[in-house]
């Protein structure tokens, strides 16, 4: 055992202690300063980029909140108000009615309201929606892509590291500035050229 007892040794140890103490404060200041230097004043929140989303269902299964904080959103200016909505009806539907066997949504979260012939309005009921993206996928594959997923910040607890983002296969999740917490599709887009004008061959 090191017997470090002795008058001058004590002061030497004290000296060492003080040195280390200063070193600790300097190190703390350095790390804090370095982090503060690259820091931002604003906080960030999590959001989905609908352009990158591949509708894989992770959003409905991986959220720490249940049902998920990710919800489907309907953009009315983009919606075609189709009588036969690809997002609403199961591909094997029997009739165009809201009976369970005709619906694509597993939780009956889409409401279908008649507007005028031949237009129907489709509304998402947020409290039923579990963010499974079935309707989003169908609407994007066959329709106007007016359904899309967004994080509802009323429900999201803004985890330091979003557990859905960790699982997202397409990097569609990222931190967005607090001031712009959504990526909403508001503007109606141009009607498709229907890829008829083929640049294929001249």
């Amino acid at each position: 055992m090191g017997d470090l007892n002795g008058p001058d040794k004590v002061s030497r140890i004290e000296f060492l202690r003080q040195g280390l103490s200063r070193l600790a404060s300097v190190a703390l200041g350095l790390v804090g300063g370095l982090a503060a230097f690259g820091s931002r004043r604003e906080n960030t929140v999590w959001q989905i980029d609908p352009a990158k989303c591949v509708k894989c269902e992770h959003c409905s299964t991986d959220c720490v909140v249940a049902p998920s904080a990710v919800k489907c959103v309907q953009s009315y200016p983009i919606c075609g108000y189709c009588r036969y909505c690809f997002g609403y009806f199961h591909p094997h539907y029997d009739e165009l009615t809201s009976a369970a066997e005709n619906q694509l949504c597993p939780t009956d979260a889409i409401e279908r309201v008649f507007v005028e012939d031949p237009y129907w309005e489709y509304n998402i009921e947020m409290d039923k929606c579990i963010g499974c993206a079935k309707c989003v996928k169908a609407c994007e594959d066959f329709g106007n892509a007016s359904f899309y997923l967004q994080v509802n910040h009323e429900i999201c607890v803004n985890c330091n590291n979003c557990s859905i983002a960790m699982q997202c296969p397409s990097d569609a999740w990222d931190r967005v500035p607090y001031d712009e917490p959504y990526r909403l599709k508001h503007e109606p887009r141009q009607v498709a050229e229907l890829s008829f004008e083929s640049p294929g061959k001249k």
């Binding site: 352009a51 959103v73 309907q74 953009s75 009315y76 200016p77 983009i78 075609g80 108000y81 189709c82 507007v115 005028e116 237009y119 309005e121 509304n123 998402i124 009921e125 947020m126 409290d127 066959f142 329709g143 106007n144 892509a145 509802n152 009323e154 429900i155 959504y182 909403l184 599709k185 508001h186 109606p188 887009r189 141009q190 009607v191 498709a192 050229e193 229907l194």
Partner: peptide
């Protein structure tokens, strides 16, 4: 990024409900 179906031309006085306006804070 294109619409397959043209925007409907409503005869009635239908107006778009605003997205996100469809729900209040509690869903």
């Amino acid at each position: 990024d294109v619409m397959r179906f043209p925007a409907p031309e409503f005869d009635s006085n239908y107006t778009f409900p605003e997205t996100w306006d469809l729900m209040d804070g509690r869903g």
